[in-house]
Write a protein that binds this DNA or RNA. Structure first.
Lengths: 119, 119
DNA sequence: CAGATAATTCACCCTTGCGTTATATAACAA
DNA sequence: TTGTTATATAACGCAAGGGTGAATTATCTG
């Protein structure tokens, strides 16, 4: 079901926070590091490492801009997650539908057996 | 942004597989353990541990049925993930919209400065 | 060139997470 | 009761992940 190193990488609150920040637009690494640094009490190198993981998972892109790195969200990454969830949901709903028809069938059967001079 | 121990727990391929299996309907622990055991080469206790994590994250429910445990997917868990993704996407799209109007504004300004006897 | 700034990488520590085997608990079957 | 099946828990080892400070690379500034 899809390319899921995406969800592997998103199984970390710091990285999810970075994604949330990037949802608002492209940001330099330093700003991201400060944000999550403040929020989670981690150092700048730690944040940089998280950025690397996100990069390698194809969740973000980075672009050089002078002496800084601009990070941006890759839309497709979010699509991956959405697709996975939608598939799970679809299966689940289909199961529920099947259950309903099953129940309906059961009701019909029960009704019939009552109406029919069987018992 | 929401209750996200959900995504923490889903940052593991075995657990995602279990969720996928449960999407098709309620299943006893043993069957799940066999499935992911075969697929990932892990033991029954290992699978049981994964089920525990999913349970504690509120992703699955378990119900006793004689000597077995029936596991089922909690729909709301999938909603959590979907909501998170949708929020990120919404922010992102909104940013794109803003960018577009910005570009439009820029074009207008450029056009005007050409038309206007300014330079 | 000599700083200063931005970011990454390195070397290392330490905790957490996942795996294993062995054991416990509980329900069913004989 | 004894045995078997289903599942969970315990105890423990090991690898991975995430954190840190120090060092490296690269760009900008005076």
């Amino acid at each position: 079901m899809g390319r899921m190193q995406t969800m592997d990488a998103l199984g970390d609150p710091v990285r999810r926070r970075i994604v949330e920040l990037l949802a608002a637009g492209t940001r330099p690494a330093g700003e991201l590091a400060r944000s999550v640094g403040d929020a989670y009490g981690i150092s700048q190198p730690a944040a940089s490492r998280h950025l690397r993981v996100l990069r390698e998972a194809g969740i973000v892109d980075s672009e050089i801009d002078g002496q800084r790195r601009l990070y941006s969200l890759r839309r497709e990454a979010m699509d991956d997650v959405a697709t996975w969830v939608e598939n799970v949901r679809a299966f689940w709903d289909q199961r529920l539908d099947a259950l309903e028809t099953e129940i309906a069938r059961g009701n019909r059967a029960r009704r019939d057996s009552r109406t029919t001079p069987g018992a």
